[in-house]
Design a protein around this nucleic acid. Structure first.
Length: 462
RNA sequence: UCCUCAUUAGCUCAGUUGGUUAGAGCAUCUGGCUGUUAACCAGAGGGUCCCUGGUUCGAGUCCAGGAUGAGGAGCCA
């Protein structure tokens, strides 16, 4: 007999037939005549109830069917005789694949704190919460590919090991095969990277954008979706040392096209989750954030507010709010400023653009005013900055001048500058932090709970 | 990295002004119960009070240092 997933069994009314299910036991209860097993196989948040008649089964095997054990059950799918579920399986045969010692198995029937579950990240996918989060995470990843594929974007695999340290997005993790105790040294006592594996200093990528631009200047529209690494000592519920990022890059898109795409993209993804992860979202709504579904529906049905950085500064200055950090044109917006704009003033997602060039990256398109660049950030309630992007500077001379002003290592960027030298074009792109999206959609409050195995400072377990 | 808070049974927590043998709920184990719904009822076992040092007749409790975790800030996605 072929195994049927619990998701399929729970959605059928084709009763009184023989079925085979396999999964992990959530709880078992009953008396000496009858026993009820709640079985889950991860295909859906709900369990199927297996009914065991103790006149047919030996008590010794039943004793081994404890919370966490893995079994296969064949029996008859019937309309449930009890309240609380519509169908159940009358067991005829049970195979015990793996026991789980009740004394030492860490997961109980009762609720655990998220902090405790982080310590047992190898087992937490077996909980309702992480089952729901991981299914939603999968659905969003799938929807990202679907969205871009529908629009004719090409999925470009940018390198994970990078030789340029000018991506400008924070501290990097070094990649090296040199002897860490006695590395080869130059005459000046510094490490001689010419003897390293790649013959130069290399790191894990902090962004695929620069390579993404190379793809866009040939394929028109590309996107990347891969792991990203930041060696920042960030200890917050919104930061990971290893996270996944989506970076579309589009030739012939100007800043407003870029904003339109990002807004449409985010709404598509949230809509996809609402339509395809209904039961998981309902569970999270009930258990963690009673406003979750309301907030998700609000985001997809309202236009994002669009303002320039200067207008935002004006609003903040006139707000009469007391801020810990002063509001000043030219300074980057602080968390408290962003939160005020999104949560108090506009009460909806906000797209800000045209930031002072001093606080943004070298590659952003310089505006005619000489003071700002065509950058855009999307700010979400609770999450803060979920998207950061810009139109790129396509003018060779302006870009070169900016690189010189900022003292960036021009010789490492020769290939990047070549795109402006040969057949340059206006183009734009943005980056979306995948875990921040999952955080928003699931209503979870710590980013370590929306990735299976989080990497944070001092933690690379599992 | 900075600020704040926390760390007591497998889990979640209580523990009075420093005072005898450190408690509860759940989990586990044993027994009971004719269809249960985080089943229920009864009983039992279970402790390096995070670590190191100090103050004191006496420290889970006070002090110092450290570790780990959480929240806020910075950095950023």
């Amino acid at each position: 007999m072929k195994r049927i997933k619990i998701k399929e069994l729970l959605s059928t009314e084709d009763f009184d037939r023989e079925v085979l299910v396999k999964g992990w036991v959530r709880t078992r209860r009953g008396n000496k005549n009858i026993s009820f097993i709640a079985l889950n196989d991860g295909s859906v948040i709900h369990n199927i109830q297996v009914v065991v008649d103790l006149a047919v089964f030996d008590e010794s095997i039943l004793k081994l069917i404890t919370t966490g054990s893995c079994i296969a059950v064949s029996g008859t799918l019937v309309k449930s005789m009890g309240q609380g579920q519509t169908s159940e399986i009358q067991a005829k045969e049970i195979t015990l694949y793996g026991t789980a010692d009740a004394e030492t198995y860490p997961l109980q029937k009762k609720g655990h704190t998220l902090e405790f579950l982080r310590e047992i990240a190898h087992l937490r996918p077996r909980t309702n919460t992480f089952g729901a989060v991981l299914r939603i995470r999968h659905a969003l990843a799938f929807a990202i590919h679907k969205y871009f594929n529908n629009k004719g974007f090409v999925y470009l695999h940018t390198p994970i090991i990078t030789g340029s340290d000018c991506e400008g997005a924070g501290e990097m993790f070094r990649v090296s095969t040199l002897d860490p105790v006695h590395p080869p040294l130059n005459e000046d006592g510094k490490i001689n990277y010419s003897e390293d594996f790649f013959g130069k200093e290399t790191n894990l990528t902090v962004s695929g954008q620069l390579e993404g631009e190379l793809g866009a200047m040939a394929l028109s529209e590309i996107y990347t979706f891969g792991p990203t690494f930041r060696a920042e000592n960030s200890n917050t519920p919104r930061h990971l040392a290893e996270f996944w990022m989506i970076e579309p890059e589009m030739a012939f898109y100007e800043i407003i096209d870029n904003m339109d795409l990002a807004e449409d993209f985010l709404k598509y993804l949230v809509t996809y989750a609402l339509e395809n992860c209904k039961e998981d979202l309902e569970f999270l709504n009930n258990m963690y954030d009673k406003e979750l579904l309301k907030n998700l529906n609000f985001v997809v049905s309202n236009k994002f507010e669009r303002k320039t950085y200067s207008e935002a500064i004006d609003i903040l200055e006139k707000s009469g709010q007391k801020f810990e950090f002063p509001v000043k044109w030219g300074a980057d917006l602080q968390s408290e400023h962003e939160r005020y704009l999104v949560e108090k003033h506009f009460k909806k997602p906000v797209i800000l653009r045209d930031y002072p060039k001093e606080i943004k990256a070298f590659y952003m398109k310089q505006n005619p005013d000489g003071k700002t660049v065509a950058a855009m950030d999307i700010l979400f309630p609770r999450i803060g900055e979920i998207v950061g992007g810009s139109q790129r500077e396509e003018n060779f001379d302006k870009l070169k001048k900016r690189i010189e002003e900022l003292n960036l290592p021009q010789k490492d960027l020769w290939w990047y500058l070549d795109t402006r030298r040969f057949g340059t074009a206006p183009h734009s792109g943005f980056g979306l932090g995948f875990e921040r999206l999952v955080l928003f959609v699931t209503g979870m409050s710590n980013i370590r709970d929306v990735i299976p195995f989080p990497r944070t400072p001092k933690n690379a377990e599992f």
